[in-house]
Computed example of a mutant assay.
Amino acid sequence: MELFTGKESVEESLVVAFGLEGGLKDFYLSMEKKSPVETARSLFTQLAKIETVHQGKLVDLYNELTGSRASQEDFSESIVSPALEGGMTTQEYLSRFNPDLSSIIDIVSMAMGIEAQALDLYQRASGKVKDKKARQALQQIADEERTHLQYLADYLDQNAS
């Protein structure tokens, strides 16, 4: 929660969220390289692409709310320190979840845990922030995290055996 003090503007909130999505994308790409199984590597690639799409939506939301024409590159330059959604480092996530990187169930369970923590982060931040536009933006981001969770649940239903 130290990333969201409650004093952020909508612009600052969206830049922080963009950085968190980028951190998670980088995490998934690093896990892709570590996984010994092609289906698991493919899943990590797919999860990274979802985070890239979410970053694009954040830039679009930023432009819509501010009247700007920022690009993803502009946002990337604004990020001070990328972090993972949920606030843990890559090693902390691996230690906490201890996933079998060849198991689709373990990978999806870990991803669902990360997305649930992100949902919680954005919901708590939206309740804390004073700026009305920032609050609405953070609530919209939380809704996206719910969508990610549903996607992962559906993926697990279709692919776990």
Results as ranks from 00 to 15, higher is better:
Ala70Lys: 14
Ile104Asn: 01
Lys7Cys: 07
Val16Asn: 03
Ala142Met: 06
Glu73Trp: 10
Tyr151Thr: 08
Asp106Ile: 08
Leu47Gln: 07
Tyr151Asn: 04
Ala125Thr: 09
Gly22His: 14
Ala125His: 11
Gln91Lys: 09
Lys57Asp: 07
Glu32Leu: 09
Thr45Val: 11
Tyr122Trp: 08
Val59Phe: 00
Leu47Trp: 14
Gly127His: 08
Val53Thr: 15
Ser13Gln: 06
Ala142Gln: 09
Phe97Leu: 12
Ser95Tyr: 11
Ser161Asp: 07
Asp26Gln: 14
Phe75Pro: 00
Ile141Gly: 06
Leu58Met: 08
Asp154Thr: 12
Ile114His: 00
Lys7Ser: 14
Glu12His: 04
Asn63Gly: 02
Tyr151Asp: 01
Glu85Cys: 10
Val108Trp: 03
Ala111Glu: 05
Thr5Ile: 04
Asp60Trp: 02
Tyr62Thr: 01
Asp106Pro: 05
Lys33Ser: 12
Asp154Phe: 06
Tyr28Gly: 05
Lys33His: 04
Leu152Gln: 03
Gly19Gln: 06
Tyr62Pro: 00
Asp131Ser: 09
Gln140Leu: 07
Ala134Asp: 10
Ser103Gly: 02
Glu64Pro: 00
Asp26Arg: 15
Ser13Met: 06
Thr52Trp: 13
Lys49Asp: 15
Ser76His: 12
Ser81Leu: 01
Ala160Lys: 04
Asp143Ile: 12
Ser95Arg: 12
Ser30Lys: 14
Ala160Arg: 04
Val129Pro: 03
Asp154Val: 12
Asp154Arg: 13
Ile107Gln: 03
Leu121Arg: 08
Gln139Met: 14
Ala125Cys: 12
Glu85Ala: 07
Glu38Leu: 11
Arg124Ile: 14
Asp100Thr: 07
Leu29Tyr: 13
Leu119Ile: 06
Ala111Lys: 06
Glu32Phe: 05
Val53Asp: 15
Pro99Ala: 07
Lys133Thr: 13
Glu77Asn: 12
Ala70Pro: 02
Thr66Tyr: 02
Gly67Tyr: 05
Ser35Met: 02
Glu8Tyr: 09
Gln140Glu: 14
Glu145Arg: 05
Asn159Arg: 10
Phe75Cys: 00
Lys33Trp: 01
Leu138Phe: 10
Glu85Ile: 15
Ala134Ser: 14
Tyr62Trp: 02
Thr39Asn: 06
Glu38Val: 15
Asn63Pro: 07
Thr39His: 07
Gly19Met: 09
Ala70Met: 08
Phe4Val: 09
Arg69Gln: 09
Gln117Trp: 06
Val37Arg: 06
Ser71Lys: 04
Gln55Leu: 06
Met31Ala: 04
Val16Gly: 03
Glu144Met: 13
Ile114Thr: 04
Ser30Tyr: 06
Leu94Phe: 12
Met1Leu: 01
Gly56Tyr: 07
Ala116Val: 10
Met1Tyr: 04
Tyr155Pro: 06
Leu156Ser: 11
Asp100Gly: 02
Gly127Glu: 13
Tyr155Lys: 05
Ser9Lys: 01
Leu138Asn: 10
Phe75Val: 01
Ser126Pro: 10
Leu3Asp: 01
Ala83Leu: 07
Val15His: 01
Ala70Gln: 08
Leu14Gln: 01
Thr52Pro: 00
Glu38Ser: 12
Leu47Tyr: 10
Gly23Cys: 13
Gln139Val: 15
Gly87Ile: 03
Phe97Trp: 15
Glu21Ser: 10
Val15Phe: 03
Phe4Met: 05
Glu144Trp: 14
Ser81Met: 00
Pro82Leu: 12
Ile79Ala: 01
Gln46Thr: 15
Ser95Gln: 11
Val16Ser: 02
Glu21Gly: 09
Gln150Arg: 05
Gln72Cys: 03
Val59Ser: 00
